[in-house]
Computed example of a mutant assay.
Amino acid sequence: MTLSDDDIERIVSAVETMEASLAVLAGKQSLSRKEFTTDRAARDIVERRFVKLTEAALDIARTLVSQKRGAQPDSNPAVMVALGHMDVLDDATTEKMTQAARFRNVLAHTYGNAIKHDDGYDALQELDRYRDFLFAVREYLDDSGVLE
């Protein structure tokens, strides 16, 4: 696989965004469920970081899918499914990242009490799906010889 310099820069920038967001979110994991549901500022930070984190993952996925297939699926969850079909992600990571893409859509398109605080708290406890995604992408790029 051959990625352009722009594609590589886009992926590197997205990885940096993901790592920064993961660090912030990891710092919020120690909140109890009650603290999370009652602390609006903490929820706002977590929700915004999840949007940024997932957008960056989607940007990586779109870049890889476009390069391989020439076209992108028309929904965020479908982009993650396409990455799974390309054998970049295993089945479990594909499913988890598809759920993450749906969660991002909820966060980006709803507000106030429409967002279930328990869903945000549960997602906060499942950051490994993003780490698994990053590991799988790195392995795919290594195996493809892109990073040499």
Rank of each mutant, 00 (worst) to 15 (best):
I60V: 15
I60F: 01
I60E: 00
A61Q: 04
A61H: 04
A61T: 15
R62G: 15
R62S: 12
R62Y: 10
T63W: 03
T63I: 07
L64S: 02
V65R: 02
Q67M: 12
Q67A: 15
R69Y: 08
R69W: 08
R69V: 09
R69G: 13
G70M: 11
G70A: 13
G70W: 08
G70E: 12
A71L: 14
A71V: 15
A71F: 15
Q72N: 14
P73T: 07
P73D: 12
D74W: 10
D74P: 10
P77V: 10
A78K: 09
A78I: 06
A78D: 12
A78C: 10
V79S: 05
M80N: 08
M80A: 04
V81A: 12
V81D: 09
A82T: 08
A82P: 04
G84K: 06
H85W: 05
H85T: 10
H85K: 13
H85Q: 11
M86P: 01
V88S: 02
V88H: 02
V88M: 01
V88E: 03
V88K: 00
V88F: 01
L89Q: 03
L89W: 00
L89Y: 00
D90I: 11
D90L: 07
D91E: 13
D91K: 07
D91W: 07
D91Y: 06
A92L: 11
A92K: 14
